[in-house]
């Protein structure tokens, strides 16, 4: 059996990284428990929520750690890598120090595609959603363009460290504004362009996680996630409605 303090450090690092990268709570608890058991500690209690986690390892003396997670992004490659690492720890008995080093490595590893292309892929996805709601070929281009601008605003909001809700509000407003301009210039209809843009901006991840957490019995986490989704949706809707109101009088559908 390894030193509980060391194991705790590994478990906390893995759990924190998973939460920061947008893993669901059940996955976090499962992974940390698997790591602890692999090091021969069976008496383990984990309580994870989207904004933090508690880990307590039993044995001769109890050791406990609390980790707070303030900001979350979606980085599935890291979730996948930590998942793989926890399997490795279970099957091949990595030393705790080595495991910790691997977790730091995962934290630093570059994404599967260069970071600057990520907004492009998101814009492509928005444009594809535009086509799904009945867009025409030239509206594909319009949606692509509009979404890149929207993401630029989102990035600006993050650099200025303004609250996320404000960013969602601005994103909704700018999405409509861009669609309105493109409507004037290219004759793209607004409805498909905005709808496609909204599909990418709506809190799909938080919503999905809320449902999954509820089914897994993690009610606190599920509630927090549902609230997160509702907040995002409300901010976005407010932005869209404001912009539409200001653009009012035009035939928009």
């Amino acid at each position: 059996m390894a030193d509980p303090h060391e194991v705790l450090r590994v478990g906390a690092a893995a759990g924190e990284l998973l939460l920061r990268c947008g893993a669901d709570v059940a996955r976090v608890e499962d992974t940390v428990a698997r790591i602890a058991r692999a090091y021969g500690i069976s008496d383990v209690e984990i309580y994870a929520t989207p904004t933090g986690l508690f880990i307590s390892l039993g044995g001769d003396t109890h050791v406990t750690v609390v980790k707070r997670v303030a900001r979350r992004i979606v980085a599935l490659d890291r979730v996948s890598a930590v998942n793989g690492l926890s399997r490795q720890i279970a099957s091949r008995h990595l030393e705790p120090g080595e495991a910790l080093a691997r977790i730091r490595e995962i934290e630093e590893q570059p994404g599967p595609v260069p970071t600057w292309t990520e907004p492009l892929f998101r814009a492509v996805s928005a444009a594809a959603c535009t086509m799904l709601v009945g867009g025409l070929p030239h509206e594909f281009g319009a949606a692509l363009l509009a979404n890149i601008v929207v993401q630029g605003v989102g990035r600006l909001n993050r650099t200025c460290r303004l609250p996320d809700a404000l960013g969602d509000y601005l994103a909704g407003a700018v999405a409509v504004g861009c669609a309105f301009l493109l409507h004037r210039w290219l004759g793209a209809r607004m409805a498909p362009v905005v709808a496609g843009g909204i599909m990418v901006l709506l809190p799909g991840t938080a919503f999905t996680a809320a449902v999954r957490d509820a089914m897994a019995g993690d009610l606190v986490s599920s509630g927090a996630r549902a609230l997160e989704a509702a907040m995002q949706a409300a901010a976005l809707a407010g932005g869209v409605a404001t912009a539409l109101y200001m653009a009012g009088g035009v035939q928009l559908l």
Binding site: V79, S80, N83, A128, C129, G196, M199, G204, G248
Partner: peptide, 29 residues
């Protein structure tokens, strides 16, 4: 051998009710 979330989150994107939400906002405005 990957977490389920990895497939569900992207898989759900085409089904998001964007047009409904937009029309709702438009009527509201």
């Amino acid at each position: 051998r990957e977490p389920t979330t990895m497939f569900i989150v992207p898989g759900l994107f085409p089904l998001v009710p964007g047009l409904m939400a937009y029309s709702g906002m438009l009527f509201l405005a």
